[in-house]
């Protein structure tokens, strides 16, 4: 195994993928706890579809670094999505479905009249560790560090807002501001992560670690820490197995996450018996 890891890590593109993937997995898991508990699990899915729409359009029009357009685009969508969700006439899950399907439709329509379903589009859909350029790596590391620092700074407030939004408001916290921060940070992680994980799979690294950790741990702090660990370990195991058996990296990471979810569920059953 060590020899395989050494051989694997001799490739520059894998070094980049390990660095970026570890940071993204950690950030996605941290944000995932609040998103799952606030019943915003599907926001990752919706935003990744928006990211797909923007990235395919940018690629079709010959823009060399679509990530730079996708980041502000998806961030603005996250804010719009929350605003629509707060409108009592449209529920938040409907708002996510509305925006995500529209963005996906625009992406597919533009692709079909321009480049067609080429390798770039397939990479956006299912992810590719080859897709990370050095510029992407620098951007990803910077964004991941910002997300982690902001999460630590706002940890106490995120707990209060996630547990009981009315109490947070009554205590003078601007709860809408913190919900927006979560959505914006999620948007950033989604855009960066979808290059490697793919549009179809990125939301799983947000949802799985939190749900897995909640099977066993009954304290918010432990759930957060466990989610981070489960997510990073799943990523590292996933990329190793994907290299070993030549399977799609994004899909392997999701399947490893599933295995952890099943294991934690079994442990939970044993503990309760």
């Amino acid at each position: 195994m060590i020899a395989t890891v050494v051989e694997m890590m001799s490739h520059i593109f894998i070094q980049r993928a390990v660095l970026v993937g570890t940071l993204i997995s950690l950030c996605a898991a941290l944000l995932g706890v609040s998103l799952v508990l606030k019943r915003y699990s599907m926001i990752g899915d919706g935003l990744s579809h928006v990211g797909f729409g923007i990235m395919t359009c940018a690629t079709a029009f010959g823009y060399a670094t679509p990530l730079y357009i996708a980041i502000p685009g998806v961030t603005i969508s996250a804010i719009i999505l929350l605003k629509i969700g707060n409108n009592h006439r449209i529920k938040s899950d409907s708002a996510i479905a509305l925006i995500s399907s529209t963005a996906l439709a625009i992406g597919v329509a533009v692709t079909s009249v321009t480049t067609g379903m080429n390798t770039d589009v397939c990479n956006f859909m299912f992810g590719s560790i080859l897709a990370m350029s050095q510029a992407d790596v620098i951007l990803s590391v910077a964004v991941s560090i910002i997300v982690t620092i902001l999460f630590v700074i706002y940890y106490r407030k995120l707990f209060v807002v996630t547990f009981d939004e009315n109490f947070a408001k009554a205590s003078g916290l601007k709860s809408d501001r913190y919900t927006t921060i979560i959505a914006v940070l999620t948007a950033l992680i989604i855009v960066i992560g979808m290059r490697m994980m793919g549009v179809m799979l990125i939301s799983s690294i947000i949802i799985f670690p939190a749900l897995t950790s909640m099977r066993i741990f009954k304290s918010f702090k432990r759930v957060v820490i466990s989610s981070g660990i489960v997510s990073v370990v799943s990523f590292l195991l996933g990329i190793y197995l994907s290299y070993l058996y030549n399977i799609s990296t994004g899909a392997t990471i999701v399947l490893v996450n599933l295995v952890f979810f099943i294991l934690f569920t079994i442990v939970e059953k044993i503990i309760h018996e």
Partner: peptide, 17 residues
């Protein structure tokens, strides 16, 4: 959320925010 994963201590402490 009555099924929220938080200890009593975490909930009470959050009152001091």
């Amino acid at each position: 959320q009555t099924n929220f994963p938080a200890t009593i201590e975490e909930v009470v402490l959050s009152g001091t925010i």
